[in-house]
Design a binder for these strands. Structure first.
Length: 454
RNA sequence: GUGGUUGUAGCUCAGUUGGUUAGAGCACUGGAUUGUGGUUCCAGGGGUCGGGGGUUCAAAUCCCCUCAUCCACCCCA
């Protein structure tokens, strides 16, 4: 048993059937991205650690997979440091690269590096795997695919609106009912401002975010533990009970509250404009202003977006937001970007749980031809060629195995039609077509068969 | 990082208060059926019971350690 091979925790193999389903998701997303004028790029699986560190907050840094330097990496450390046994101190000496944690930061790096070749605003999409050293559980993997679309080099809120439309279209195409939650970091900053804790923005919002799960009292307790004063907590109370109110009610409450905070006001105006512009379009899913939506990634500065499936219990299946200064860290100032990311693996799990993968998404070989031997094979190859020329996916068994074995192969691979081309068929000129679902057989010419299946 | 769950055949799992040679279904191989799969019947191959240690005349079963796994929290896609 100890000899059994395995793969690292949180990673997965994908069987042919699973790949067909996954490709259906990727293709759907790709199609919508292209429809909105985004073009594709790819970046390496690994980045320099200096590119990745410090971009995702304290939690994020811990979850980075680091790659050990090649060669005798311990040479560069000195004995005193090693003796301290503090991995955080020596890790920078023995590891200079890491696996990418998301696609947004590598993209920001890409933009800075290729700024001379890019015509702004730059609309790119990217579908690649990312790695996080999290503990796996339901809907959470250590290696998973993100499908990102970002617009960089444009402040216009039209980008936010378009991204929301993309989200709506993708989930409509996939037949998943979702709630699109939006908020704005500037509103959260305004709230933190107004209660006199501008520096505790993240702590406050992360705690508020949990109100649905743990209730108001527990939220207050957590805030007190983080050093938020009772006065400030009291001021926050009206927000705790907004859940479920209409967007207008939320905005009204907010207007009173952050009216004298410049940044809060700005955020409110942005949200209002986005919602106003969205009215032009008929969306199939609800867009909800969720003032407790925070998102931990530290680079967001404006709009933030999160999508949850209505009918399945699962973490967010899509998220995103605006980041004003991500490229600034790499030396390109004043370039604002906004993007979204679909979690393909969670979407897969949702589709599976709801059992709504369309049958057409898992279509494989249409026609199977058993191999009857050297002589018959020649004829079969001609038929095969003709079928393929007509766009019909077809295959011939590579060797003259037993009929039972060959039929089992066709059955196992869900191939709907089998064409028998043995000596009797070759003599008569008519082929035997077997429908594997009904078991019926009929003599037909190749042309008739092609017409029927194509 | 914190808390819990479960480890028995390729897969899903039975296995009584510790007691002969550890079982079933599915899958696989062969046959009934040498040109017909999915249904049926017959036969067969497959296991250091996660690993190590302990208690006992005797351990899959009890105890300790360890590894793995899944789930929840945290965080997120």
């Amino acid at each position: 048993m100890a000899q059994k091979p395995s793969i690292p925790k949180g990673t997965r193999d994908f069987s042919p059937q699973e790949m067909a389903k996954r490709n259906y998701i990727f293709d759907t997303i790709k199609q919508v991205y292209q429809l909105f004028g985004f073009s594709q790029i790819e970046t390496p699986a690994m980045e320099n650690l200096s590119t990745l560190m410090g971009k995702y907050g304290e939690e994020g840094d811990k979850l980075l997979f680091k790659i050990l330097n090649s060669g005798d990496f311990l040479k560069k450390t000195n004995r005193d440091e090693l003796a301290q046994v503090e991995s955080s101190k020596i890790s920078t000496k023995i590891s200079e690269k890491g696996l990418r944690y998301d696609l947004t930061v590598p993209f920001a790096r890409y933009v800075v590096q290729h700024r001379n070749d890019i015509q702004f605003p730059f609309k790119r999409y990217q579908i690649q795997s990312v790695w996080r050293a999290d503990r796996p559980q339901k809907g959470r993997y250590r290696e998973f695919f993100q499908c990102d679309a970002d617009v960089i080099g444009s402040n216009s809120l039209m980008n936010e609106v378009e991204l929301l439309q993309i989200i709506d279209r993708v989930f409509t195409a996939l037949n998943i009912k979702v709630t699109i939650k939006i908020n704005n970091r500037k509103i959260l900053a305004g709230i933190a401002d107004s209660i006199g804790h501008p520096e505790r923005l993240i702590d406050i919002t992360v705690a508020m975010d949990k109100i649905d799960k743990i209730g108001p009292e527990a939220v207050y307790t957590e805030m007190r533990a983080k050093g938020i004063s009772d006065d400030a907590i009291n001021m926050l109370e009206p927000f705790m009970n907004l859940q479920g109110n209409s967007t207008n009610q939320k905005l009204n409450c907010l207007r009173e509250f952050v009216g004298d905070s410049a940044i809060g006001n700005q955020g409110m105006l942005e949200v209002e404009e986005i919602l106003e512009r969205l009215k032009t379009f008929k969306l199939n899913n609800e867009v909800e202003l969720d003032l407790t939506l925070a998102r931990g990634l530290s680079y967001y500065t404006g709009a933030i977006i999160e999508v949850v499936a209505n009918d399945v219990k699962m973490g967010s299946i899509c998220g995103g937001g605006r980041y004003d200064d991500l490229t600034g860290i790499f030396g390109l100032k004043d370039v604002s970007g906004v993007g979204i990311s679909f979690g393909a693996d969670r979407i897969y799990d949702v589709l599976n749980e709801l059992d709504i993968f369309p049958k057409s998404s898992i279509k494989g070989t249409q026609v199977f031809i058993p191999n009857f031997g050297k002589e018959e094979e020649k004829e079969a190859l001609k038929i095969l060629e003709e079928l393929r020329n007509n766009g019909i996916a077809a295959e011939l068994f590579p060797s003259n195995a037993k009929m039972k074995k060959q039929m089992t192969y066709a059955n196992h691979n869900n191939i709907p039609f089998v064409i028998m081309a043995g000596s009797t068929e070759i003599e008569s000129g008519l082929l035997t077509l077997k429908n594997m679902e009904t078991g019926e057989q009929a003599s037909k010419s190749l042309n008739e068969i092609i017409e029927m299946i194509a």
